[in-house]
Design a protein around this nucleic acid. Sequence first.
DNA 1: GCCGTTTTCGGCCCGACTGTTTTCAGTCG
Length: 608
Amino acid sequence: MFVSFISSFETNRIYNLFAEETLLNFIVLSFQEKRLPMTNTAIAEIFNTIADILDMQRVPWKPVAYRKAARIILTLGEELSDTYIKRGINGLKEIPGIGDALAHKIIEYITIGHIHEFEKLKASIPKGLYDLLRVPGLGPKKAWTLYTTLGIKDLSSLKKAAHTGKISTLPGFGKKSEHDILKGIGLVAQGNERQLLGVVLPLALHLVHVLRAHPAVQRAEIAGSLRRMKETIRDIDLLVVTDTPEKVMKHFTSLPLVTRILAQGPTKASVVLQEHINCDLRALPAPSFGAGLLYFSGSKDHNILLRNIAIKKGYKLNEYGLYKGTKPVAGATEQSIYTKLGLQYIPPELREDPASITLARTHTIPSLIPYNSIKGDLHVHTTWSDGAHSTEDMIRAAQQIGYQYVAITDHSKSLHVAHGLDTKRLLQHIEEIETLQKKFSITILTGSEVDILPDGSLDYDDTLLDKLDIVIASVHSRFKASPEAMTKRITTALENSHVTILGHPTGRLINKREPYLFDTDAVFAAAKKNKVAIEINSSPDRLDLKDSHVKLAVKKGVKLCINTDSHATDHFPFIMYGIAQARRGWATTRDVINTLPLAKLLHFIRKS
DNA sequence: GCCGTTTTCGGCCCGACTGTTTTCAGTCG
């Protein structure tokens, strides 16, 4: 009721109406009552839409600012509403790309749930016009032309106009664009959601393998968001070094995986692969390879920052090299370019975080956890609960990887859908593991992934937990509890001295299920106090903790544990996705407990 | 709309490819 009362006022009057402090109290209260989840995503989407509309209307530069702000907001670890509650408008304005005007728009969204200027802007154009922008080859300018000249205001009227040949009569459009638009509408219908890193990376590795086998290819590498190991991927970027690029492009576009060619020039080809994944291939001469790899690895903002540094130092940076006038001064390797710019080498996983440039200036980027540093997997399921393979098979697979230790951690009794083990079966399972140990050189730790019950107690009693080496405490039920209840539930569980690890801490499933909400600061503090490690679950659809939370945990000195949650022998390699998230969150070997040799790991577990 | 070793105004990364042009605007990354 209070909310609707407030929203009936013009925004600028609200700021006069309430003292800052009262307003803050109101926000805190309304958040406790009515959660507005995923505020950052919503605001970023609004800013991008504003940019689209302003672009259509040919407003200069503003769209650039809105898009930049949207990009930065999506990389923030903290909800903007939290930033505002804790540090007010100045907290918002400290975020790069956000000045006075955007800060006020964000506050407006947080406090009253919408942005007046956006609503006005949105009302000025037909709703279906945004869909036009999703058609490949149609940008804001062309969409606006179609709208203002032919009155096209959604996909169906676009389709009709294309079919009747009206579009090709417009200046700037021809028969080919009309044909492409019809094709593009079909693609929009198929959807192009970002796909999981774990789905796209294997496909990209296969393509690299195929390209490397071609005699004209001297080198082939993955670039783009895939090289940064972003949790979801829209398209694959590949680079090759070759003296005969046309040959390689032809080979590439005729691969059986390719279902459609979007563009093909002498040095660049763009195709659609099976499963609707786009893939770009660029050819570069060897002396430019580092510059190309740097440029095509991004992120976009990282490139912009580097180019600005180059300009200030009297250079020009592009995908072919670093130039002083027309003379190339670096380009064969990424390292050579960073060095010339006076920067420390920045690992690709950190190239979305502007802080990496700041630290690179003073050569203070820490050594990130290497991909080969994990000494054992501490979260593994077997056929005793919902795994696909026997205890023995899972142990053998872990040993083949070369791990020093592995923990077998099946589900606890309350998780009926996963055939959780009751007390009797758990005791039998422990016995089986003790017998199996005699057959293997790898150290097998007995464990369990124990449900955290709604009241914060654990699913087994302390006498039973005492028999286990590893206890992963996880939430598997009542995800929609209030943040306060969930915080209490998790922190209570962490107080139990048997708990070693907090499993998949936010419960999210990428593209499928939102994370459950809790006070991250309180949970991390409880983990630190009780010597509990927070899991980075490497399962491709979880990647939980996500990168920004890893960064927060590292900053607070909370220990992490990178596990696969393997339910089959071929899940163990997922560990690399978890390590990637750890690296994206600035974690070093020291932050991760399962980089420790066995004796030191046991020391951590015993909390001595 | 943002930002500052170019600092309160005047800049804002840079190039490939495409289609429709016959020198370029729009799109994309």
